[in-house]
Design a protein around this nucleic acid. Structure first.
Lengths: 103, 103
DNA sequence: GAAACACATAAGCATGCACTTATTTGATTC
DNA sequence: GAATCAAATAAGTGCATGCTTATGTGTTTC
């Protein structure tokens, strides 16, 4: 669970894939463009991200479209929330984030 | 950076150590109690957590006191904030967090 | 239904990593 | 300063993991 998520994010290539997907859903071939990664490697990374619920897939004919799965991000948020007692007084990024959520 | 943090948290033993430290700072020996882990292993794990800025140390005589370092948590929060477009509409844990921070 | 295409899976290999035992460093106590 | 204790480091080992090449599966097109 947390195990799968943190392990998935521990690999820089997978974080790059995730980051790219965050700009918009796309299929595995499109993901590979400009990424110096073999087709099987990409497929394996996507499987790891999918298991971690960081990414979800949807078959569209011959292609498989991938997109960010909010569930994984929510799990990280929950993990992080457990330690809120230790958060620095000011975290601007989060303040913005939470302001957005509150409206 | 993110690399160090996610790698550090990818190991279940290190997450357990971090979680224990979150209940209050303590030295390495106290951390080992009830944890079935050798002294060198604990020391190595703490070094990894320290490099990731998830934990910080303070020598106190013969002992070295460890405690949660807010910097690491802030880095995770910043990473998470980059993907706020994908957050589910409601994440209760974070709403609580917001309430805490806003008072 | 045969060829072409997108992707997944299998199997093998090299490197990384978490552990072990042994030793060293640093600090206290007598 | 010798003994003792807390913690760090060194060196070696077994297993996990990210890659590769080869092959399999599912879908479309002619």
């Amino acid at each position: 669970m947390e195990q799968d998520i943190f392990k998935a994010l521990a690999d820089p290539t997978r974080r790059a894939i995730f980051e790219k997907l965050a700009t918009g859903g796309m299929n595995a071939s499109a993901l590979r463009e400009g990424m110096a990664i073999s087709q099987p490697a990409m497929s394996q990374h996507l499987a790891v991200l999918r298991t971690a619920r960081l990414v979800r897939e949807e078959r569209q004919g011959r292609f498989v479209n991938y997109e960010v799965d909010p569930d994984g991000l929510a799990l990280i948020a929950q993990w992080l929330a457990k330690y809120r007692a230790y958060w620095p007084a000011r975290i601007d990024a989060l303040k913005d984030l939470l302001r957005d959520m509150d409206q």
